[in-house]
Design a protein around this nucleic acid. Structure first.
Lengths: 214, 214
DNA sequence: CTATATATTGACACGATGTCAATAACGCGC
DNA sequence: GCGCGTTATTGACATCGTGTCAATATATAG
């Protein structure tokens, strides 16, 4: 009987994944605001009511996508770190990775932004909580790179607490990406192209951590 | 007869302002998401249908509040600039002003954030367009302070185009405030207090522009 | 084959948005 | 004061999306 329950569990997990798949595709196609539960249900070829068996409400479904988004982000961060030796270069690579990520998966960045903008209501067992955990794991990669940088001397040691520095860099970078993605037209009107903007921001951030340049 | 039309126009403007007042109060009380047109109408003591005479839809009403928000922000920036002589200090004061502003009027910052996150659909004559203009005016203050700083030598001259620098600083600061307001609980869990976070970010930004320190 | 648990659905109630024809208020010529 | 055109204001409607629940279908066990 345990075998049965196990298979049931797997089926359930698969169904859940199918739903998230459908929702994610629609998210990428038209933006979350114009995705309805009905559309998700249709795309996943099941009834709308069933969605509410797997997800408390629409928000929880979005957070389920957010979980994937943050997991993917962490992966990209890890790849970025792996390709560089010195901490400073790793941190810069993380910034670049975040920017590429936002370009490659706009809907993932969107859900990250929403997650970061809305303050949490820490209901235990919710997907929102899972997002928070994934977010912590992603930022932990940054902290580690900063630590490495301070240790190998590529990042100035008087930068302060690595955690604080990591969070600040995160906020900076996130702000830049958000502005770049949402206001590219206005920036162009200002004579600013997105790639230039990104590179400029990255160079400033590198200068910030670098011990010699100033 | 022109007199009549003029008075009519004024009445109309007043009505409009009353509606925005009502909407803004509700915004501040409960956040925009849980404000309904019905509630706005009730608070302004008129029928819901009339709101749609003054504002195309709910979004336009929010953008009307956004217009006020950005105007207020510009005022704060101007005050901040006026209280300092050197450009570098002016720029830092602008950053501080933005942070205080977000603390004093959370709903204003919220509408700024939403405006900045959503990409514009440039329908002429809309309040959204007016927001964009007000936003430009606010950032123009920053640009001017940077120019002054480069001129008086308090800001390193190799910082590049003042417009680009201004936009970048804006993005940085906005990102910090957003994270600070939305995730104060999580930051606390990381052992980071909001005032410390803000001060830290400001000190980093100051170091960025300062020619000597590095 | 029946009984029991689980998965799935159709249909409902509710709430919010946006529209429109109908009504009320106003200024005006008489 | 009285109709009359114009403008302001509203009630009622249609539409859509969410979340819930009892009812049905499906699978498992005895």
């Amino acid at each position: 009987m345990s075998y049965i329950a196990e298979r049931r569990e797997e089926e359930k997990e698969r169904r859940r994944a199918e739903i998230v798949d459908a929702a994610e595709r629609l998210y990428a196609e038209k933006g979350w605001d114009s995705v309805t539960m009905d559309q998700v249900a249709k795309r996943a070829r099941l009834s709308r009511a069933l969605l509410y068996v797997y997800f408390r409400d629409r928000d929880e479904l979005q957070f389920a996508i957010g979980e994937r988004a943050l997991e993917m982000l962490r992966m990209r961060f890890l790849e970025a770190v792996a390709q560089h030796g010195r901490g400073l270069d790793q941190v810069e690579a993380i910034g670049r990775a975040y920017m590429r990520y936002a370009q490659d998966f706009p809907h993932y960045f969107d859900v990250c932004a929403r997650f970061q903008a809305h303050s949490v209501s820490p209901e235990p067992g919710s997907n929102e909580g899972a997002c928070a955990v994934k977010g912590d794991q992603a930022i932990a990669v940054v902290v580690e790179a900063i630590r490495a940088g301070i240790a190998d001397g590529s990042i100035r040691s008087d930068i302060g607490d690595p955690g604080l520095y990591a969070v600040t860099l995160w906020a900076f970078t996130h702000g830049v990406i958000q502005l770049a993605t949402a206001k590219s037209a206005d920036l162009a009107r200002f004579g600013i192209a997105i790639p230039d903007f990104s590179e400029y921001a990255l160079s400033l951030l590198r200068a910030l951590g670098s011990p010699r340049t100033g």
